[in-house]
Design a protein around this nucleic acid. Structure first.
Lengths: 189, 189, 189, 189
DNA sequence: AATGAATGAGGATTCATTCAT
DNA sequence: GATGAATGAATCCTCATTCAT
């Protein structure tokens, strides 16, 4: 087991602090000092490790997406039938901390970052591609050529329910999942 | 024809400028001076009319939502059958300038504003309610008790496709509408 | 007479304040806030008018050089014989405020700025050219072909005495001039 | 041969690094970290050995002046006639690395330091005294009472040519020396 | 001897906002 | 109605310096 130097520990703390701070504040308009305080260190140290505020944000976004990737991979582990895999992928999107107000607010704001920052946009594209491909692989054996639009619809639905969940709070994780299963009943044979 | 005083003209100019500036920049992180310049006046005048930057944003958001409301109402004008009305509502969401990159980027950012600002959140709730009620009224005669979840799904789908359109540009208005009609085919009898 | 708007007044105040502050501190390592305070305004206003600290420095340097140019021109006004013109040029270098500790310290520091900043270097080259050409025009009728090296020597001597004056204070304006005249006695026929 | 402890080695490395860094950057506005990196060690070690940035600069200046002193002494070694000694002193000022852009830029900046720092001013005074006394000793046998102003003029000329060399690059070591010899021809019998 | 870790202090720059005209 | 002038408050970022190891 590699012994963690202090650098990765500090970086991880800052990334988590960034997500928490952005999530709590509900906006990317947070200061490095706030993030650093949340992480229990000086803002100077935050700069020392990341070089700039932008880089902290990007690392946080990368972390969130990586976390989602891991969750999806684990959810699929040992699941073999296409239908079950499909449910697993969907469940991964709404499970874990993903749907908690704070995390979700951070997600939404990092989404918006992609409108400005090319690297953020790239990360988002990677996520979109993975999600679509995961869905496609499951759907194709089930509905053949209808899989392509269905995958796109499913992806959009996931994001849309996310948005509703974050913004109006009228939908939570289970409710979102229920609606999606409802949709799938109509699509799947 | 009522002759417009100068105040509403200036205000309208500022609102449009705010939407354009936020849309172009892809972020709420724009300065009052930028908005004012876009509107062809001094930043001091912008403050004179709106009192604060926040108020300009709220007015812009209100304007966008009102615009959507008008578009929806017009689209429904003279349309009588539930099914046709349903299509009209959907079409209103993806037509007009709604799906143009800039407008949509402004939308997304004003969405995020609702995470912070109670008034923005209220406006968003109003919009959500209206959309849901519009959809419900159309869906109930068609599918009865299944209308409630279907309305919610439809609403989320609309938002989700919006998001995709704004962020990845891989979907445009017509494509979004096509996917929705696809979905409806499965839901409607 | 053009009525001065407030902008040129403020800019002039900042330029003088920059020279005074740099001169007093003896280093370019002064803050915009210090300059602004010296000029009786906020640092924000200083930025409003000049855009950056660098620009303030460059404007100050330009001002100093322009001032020297004016002094030289005035000193030459109505003076006709080459010998008298030569003395006038020299006198202009050591007269006025030029040789006061503060001004001179500012000079020296702006000199050093030319090592870093291309625009400052350009300004300095212009000054050097003018001085050399002024000297040459006077010297040529007096000593013919020996004028070129003599002009260069004179220029260097002026700068060197300046340096001594600024740094060790063992030489003041009149003393410097006396040494130069001493030199000229040997060079001129 | 005395084996050098590590301390003097490190100190020497830092001094050379300071001169190089200041020379290359053309400004005293360099960071301790930059100097330390140039010297191949951590900035913490630099502080360990010198205590402060200021002290590093002073040591560097002292080194430069000492180096000049050594060069002058060596140049004078075995030279006996006043005239030859005079030329040797002058040559020492423009030979070696003295006139290379980088060294000279460092010189100029350390000069400016004397405006701020009393110790730097003291060092400079010592150098000035030595140079003047060296020149005087040579000049007195040659021109008697005219030696005092001539020494001062020569000193100023050396500095002035230095300045020109550093700042405009239009004069190099040999050219500077040639101008000085030119001057001497007029002064010496 | 040597350094990575850490920070307090500070500085340039930006901006919403106010106000006199 | 309109604006230029002005600023206080913030924010990012840098850096000399300290300290535990």
């Amino acid at each position: 087991m590699p012994k963690l130097g202090v650098e990765p520990i500090r970086k991880a703390a800052l990334i988590n602090a960034a997500i928490a701070t952005v999530g709590r504040k509900g906006s990317l308009d947070v200061t490095v000092a706030q993030i650093a305080r949340e992480a229990g260190m000086s803002s100077a140290l935050a700069h020392h490790y990341f070089g700039s505020k932008e880089r902290i944000f990007l690392a946080a976004m990368r972390h969130i997406l990586a976390q989602y990737g891991t969750a999806a991979r684990e959810a699929l582990h040992g699941v073999t039938t296409p239908r079950a895999r499909l449910f697993a992928v969907i469940h991964a999107s709404f499970g874990g901390t993903n749907f908690e107000q704070e995390t979700a607010a951070a997600w939404l704001n990092f989404y918006a970052l992609a409108l400005i920052d090319p690297e953020a946009a790239r990360l988002l594209r990677v996520y979109h591609s993975r999600l679509r491909s995961n869905l496609l692989v499951c759907l194709r054996p089930l509905i053949g050529e209808g899989a392509v639009p269905a995958a796109q619809t499913l992806g959009a639905l996931i994001d849309g329910l996310y948005l509703r969940g974050v913004l109006s709070g009228e939908i939570d994780g289970p409710a979102a999942e229920a609606l999606i299963l409802d949709y799938l009943q109509k699509v799947l044979p």
